[in-house]
């Protein structure tokens, strides 16, 4: 659950884009676009290209990535969550996340939620209440709960990310 705050939107609404297990950071931000890492808006046009060629063209502001196990495994490239966020994705839902990806996402203020994504289908309309920890699948008319984040991460998210946390507190205040 994420506590109420101004820096992140509490209620998110959008459409589901489904992905399978083991979506690596190589699939999210392919190495062949290494040279675009200094041009993130350009790199964002290729987000998840090797997992679903059409995703970048179709995703609308606020939509969700809904994936299987171990989302974001592999390289530490923070460009992966960053371009997901830049592409407009409101949150990533998965059965589980790889460690570095999860931490990077919180640091940059991208909500990453662990829940039973088998219950959600492609194109389902979702409404997520970050403060209550509830995902409503409006298409199916069901409610899912997502796992609470550790307190430190809530603190970081509430500050707007790690850069903002450090700037505000002149160091760590966790």
């Amino acid at each position: 659950m994420i506590k109420q705050d101004d820096s992140i939107k509490k209620i998110l609404r959008g459409k589901s884009f489904k992905f399978g297990d083991d979506i690596s950071t190589d699939l999210i931000a392919p190495g062949r676009y290494f040279h675009l890492r200094s041009n993130l808006s350009e790199l964002a046009k290729h987000v998840l290209e090797d997992a679903d060629e059409e995703f970048a063209g179709k995703v609308n502001n606020g939509d969700f990535i809904v994936a299987g196990r171990n989302f974001g495994l592999g390289s530490s490239r923070e460009h992966a969550p960053t371009i997901i966020k830049l592409a407009g994705v409101g949150a990533v839902l998965a059965k589980s996340f790889a460690r570095i990806f999860f931490r990077n996402s919180i640091n940059i203020g991208l909500p990453v939620l662990v829940c039973d994504t088998d219950k959600i289908d492609k194109d389902d309309e979702l409404e997520i209440d970050l403060s209550k920890g509830i995902i409503k699948d409006l298409t199916k008319n069901i409610e899912l709960k997502f796992k609470a984040l550790p307190d430190v991460m809530i603190k970081l998210l509430n500050d707007g990310g790690l850069v903002e946390h450090i700037t505000k507190n002149k160091g760590f205040n966790l």
């Binding site: 931490r103 640091n107 790690l162």
Partner: peptide, 8 residues
Amino acid sequence: GMGSTDIA
């Protein structure tokens, strides 16, 4: 390993 922001 961590991301760029943590390392910064």
